[in-house]
């Protein structure tokens, strides 16, 4: 075959692929916005579901998602930052220990999210919670069942690699000269990390946090068995309460509802809220990451 024809074919194929991707994105957005926008209003955001969840709003799902991601961030960010500091500052790259941690972080990042859900069920609820009940409540069931704490911690495990990778990347952009300046003034390694490295990595820590929150806000599988509820007439008041979440709400609305057609507007509007939330969080993360890369020069 003529080389020019081959070139033309390859170019057309790559072009078609790109168009296909754009088409998919645009369709998702168009369908979601068209179906969701007319139903999106203040009462939808601020009311509880009504009439067997065929009417009303998604207020408890928004609040539940917010609280869950907050607890998740409180757990995942410090843990992730500490791990990233170890990997970037203390670990000897060639040691088996550092290699093992790196392998574990990479593996954690590719484990299917449903596995995290099962792990949370087995570990947090079946093991930690059950033993807490045995020790603290005389065997009475309180922690040994799904709740917002276990769901958040399960989600924290899922998002941990995101935090570690983002923070380590930011720490590595701190120039060696800055560390040397600090050490040459008689600072200890820890003082250097605390006063030079971490303050310089703030935007990376923030990026990692936002990416983790945006991932956690959208995931359903990890919270399926660990704390998300079908419907609650009240917001969670304690860590041992269950909660409603946006992603799970979409799932049950579209599969478990008594009248799937009647809930269609709610499904669209909830999807739109979730998309707007994760898109805007990701956009902030992209801007922050761009700023870090620019600082690196």
């Amino acid at each position: 075959m003529n080389r020019n024809i081959k070139d033309t074919i390859v170019e057309s194929l790559t072009g078609v692929s790109v168009l296909l991707i754009i088409f998919i994105i645009v369709s998702i957005l168009a369908v979601t916005i068209a179906g969701g926008w007319p139903n999106l209003n203040w009462s939808f955001l601020s009311e509880f579901p009504r009439d067997g969840m065929t009417k009303g709003g998604i207020f408890p799902a928004i609040i539940g998602t917010a609280i869950m991601t907050l607890i998740m961030a409180v757990a995942a960010v410090p843990f992730g930052v500490v791990t990233a500091v170890y990997l970037a500052e203390y670990a000897n790259e060639k040691s088996w220990f550092a290699k093992t941690i790196r392998f574990a972080v990479k593996t954690l990042a590719v484990v299917p999210s449903i596995i995290f859900g099962l792990f949370g069920l087995g570990f947090f609820i079946g093991f930690v919670g059950k033993n807490m009940d045995g020790l603290l409540n005389g065997g009475e069931l309180k922690w040994g069942q799904p709740n917002i704490l276990w769901a958040s911690l399960t989600m924290a495990l899922l998002t941990l690699p995101v935090v570690i990778v983002a923070v380590e990347e930011a720490i590595r952009t701190i120039p060696r000269e800055m560390r040397e300046a600090s050490l040459a003034l008689g600072a200890t390694k820890w003082q250097t990390i605390k006063k030079v490295v971490l303050p310089g990595s703030v935007s990376g820590i923030l990026t990692g946090t936002i990416l983790a929150v945006s991932r956690g806000a959208g995931e359903v599988a990890p919270i399926l068995f660990t704390g998300a509820a079908y419907f609650l007439s009240d917001l969670p008041h304690s860590l041992s309460d269950q909660f409603m979440s946006l992603g799970y709400h979409i799932y049950i609305m579209s599969t478990q509802s008594s009248d799937v057609d009647a809930t269609l507007p709610i499904q669209f509007a909830t999807t739109l809220v979730l998309l707007l939330l994760t898109f805007s969080l990701n956009a902030i993360a992209v801007v922050l990451r761009y700023k870090i890369r620019k600082n690196r020069k």
């Binding site: 040397e180 300046a181 050490l183 030079v196 303050p199």
Partner: peptide, 16 residues
């Protein structure tokens, strides 16, 4: 030791 023996580097490196 490093408090007693200070160092100035080739590329000026003030902290941000």
């Amino acid at each position: 030791l490093r408090k007693k023996v200070g160092m100035i580097f080739q590329k000026s490196n003030p902290f941000a």
